[in-house]
Design a protein around this nucleic acid. Structure first.
Lengths: 341, 341
DNA sequence: ATCGTTTACGCAAACGCTTGCGCGGTTAAC
DNA sequence: GTTAACCGCGCAAGCGTTTGCGTAAACGAT
């Protein structure tokens, strides 16, 4: 037969041979099985330690049909939001003796499908997924469902029925943000929103409107502008907002990057930040605190906690204590963090 | 025998049975083995496709003794530098059909050891590691060596003989940075350096000194100050530097965060950035470009490329085309990126 | 002395896949 | 027409581990 490289690692077989007992006894001894005598257990364990034995997990995985591995698929590993999320995921996975398999889609649907495929082949026990922004077809997730591999979607969740999700309620955060500005006396509040099709944009818009309604103020559609999140787009949006007859004194921006671009534009127009114009944003990056003119407040989305929550949800799914037709949808509250009163 | 959950996934056994041929033929057919007839190949492949067959990788891994998985251990997944590096690692691993197993040490030596242990049990083919800053004992890596699992250290590399490394030469970058400032006419250049024990601090300092020497300028030790990288520490350092008799007109800061803190301090002192005082830094974050006063230039360390290089090195190690006593140490050049002339 | 019970261990199958080798049968070479 | 080469496929071992079941020996109870 083929000579396998064998890697030199000792196996329970060798232990068994040296001790003149059967492999099953060794296996059970190492697992502290009750039907193994204390003496035998001790002898096995000692020899195992001496030989530097280490259980071959690949064999176990194969035999058990489980890998104690969870796959995590994200658009961009290097985006601050996601890397915090990964951190949360890895931490909770680690403390539950799971390991984490990683993949990034770069917002490319084809690559997303391939990664899911690869994870399926790796026989991950479950997946945590944030879909790419261009993904329109969800067949790959349907395959996971058929393979009975549970999936928890988080943050960027697809528009599908019967799925598990963890996401952040941006509406409430937006309401808090607008509330904050209203309390500071602002009456004409602009919003640089993101692309219309994004759920996140919709949530921001409805939050904005609801906040105004709460204060019995009329909502002026002119004050919300959809931008493309690029620096150029933000400049245009700023130009537009500042050109309105009603003098805009505060602006809610889609995220911190947009906020920073907007600040740049405002500075060029010789506006004084937090005086002539006040910004409120959404926290995508911990670095915004370091900028010269951070937003007066920002809506925190707790990526680390989201990752943690998603992982816990997946783990409880894996523990099998859920009915198959039971779907968890967790909505975390976002929270306004005030930097400058 | 125990009824395994079987997961419903079809196996080559079933394919063989349906086609009335042997499993070995099916296996070979799926691998396009030359000794299988074209007709048979076609029939097997078609049925496999119909049945939605998918090869059980855990079985293959187990059988082959390889996992096509590389473990990556980093201090903090959410740090911008590392998350870029991960991105590079994942990208090149992906395009070489490897997958990535993730772990973060949080700079905790015990956890680092456990993760390495876990990766070893997972039978990863190799590891890419950036060690924690508190790690003093390297036994866990010695175990990997004994298990013949190759390791490539990157960025934060331990002081060990006979290891593979990828790191960035900060000295040359620093020389470029100081050159840049000298060419702009600055003659009194301060440096806010990091803690003395860090290799990175030493490299910066020697780069600074060498650059001055190159220009036949005398080196004034007063101008280099070691800080602790906190905002408070940076303020103190700034206060010190600005209090010197010789008027400091430019400062090299340890990283972008320090630079931003330093800028804040300078602004409070009513100094005009890039006029009264110019900053040069090291690029740890892509966000610094968004700040109101980015450094005039920054030393780029190319984390993505470092990740890529480390992965390629590991892959070539895995391909087995290297002598065992041959150790690769790659030193990437850092490069000054000029933002403001 | 008989019986049930517990204790302590071994046997062997099974997980899904790969692969060295063997073996009939066809084809080409001399 | 004999030999050699080759094609196409099956047999079966083996990767390391877990685990249902069988079974001796020991023991207490009746």
């Amino acid at each position: 037969m083929r000579k396998v490289v064998s890697s030199g690692q000792p196996t329970i077989k060798e232990i068994a041979k040296k001790l003149n007992i059967s492999v099953s006894t060794v296996s059970r001894a190492l697992h502290d099985h009750h039907s193994i005598g204390l003496r035998t257990k001790a002898r096995v364990k000692q020899l195992a330690a001496e030989m530097n034995y280490e259980r071959n997990q690949t064999a176990v995985y194969f035999q058990q049909g489980r890998t104690f591995t969870i796959g995590i698929l994200l658009p961009e590993l290097s985006e601050a939001f996601f890397s915090s999320a990964i951190s949360g995921i890895e931490d909770t996975a680690y403390s539950n003796d799971y390991t984490v398999l990683l993949g990034q889609s770069h917002d490319d649907e084809a690559r997303e499908k391939q990664i899911i495929q690869s994870m399926k082949q790796h026989r991950v026990d479950g997946c945590i997924v944030s879909i790419g922004k261009n993904t329109r077809n969800y067949d790959h997730f349907e395959m996971l469902r058929q393979a009975k591999i549970p999936v928890v979607f988080f943050d960027r969740i697809p528009d599908l029925p019967n799925i598990h999700t963890v996401s952040c309620n941006l509406e409430s955060g937006t309401i808090q943000a607008v509330d904050f500005l209203l309390k500071k006396g602002h009456r004409v509040i602009g919003m640089i929103n993101g692309p219309e099709q994004l759920v996140a944009s919709k949530e921001r818009a409805t939050g904005y409107i609801k906040a105004l309604r709460k204060h019995r103020l009329k909502y002026d559609p002119e004050l919300i502008v959809n931008a493309d999140l690029t620096a150029a787009g933000t400049s245009q949006a700023m130009e537009y907002l500042l050109s309105l007859k009603r003098k805009v004194t505060a602006i809610v921006t889609f995220n911190d990057y947009v906020a920073m671009d907007a600040v740049q534009y405002a500075l060029k127009q010789k506006l004084e930040i937090n005086k002539d114009i006040t910004f409120v944003s959404y926290a995508n990056t911990p670095v915004s605190g370091y900028t010269a003119f951070p937003p007066a407040a920002s809506v925190e989305q707790f990526p680390y906690e989201q990752g943690k929550a998603a992982t816990n949800m997946l783990l409880s799914l894996l523990s099998g204590e859920h009915a198959l037709n039971e779907y968890n949808n967790m909505l975390m509250e976002s929270q306004l963090v005030i930097h400058d009163r």
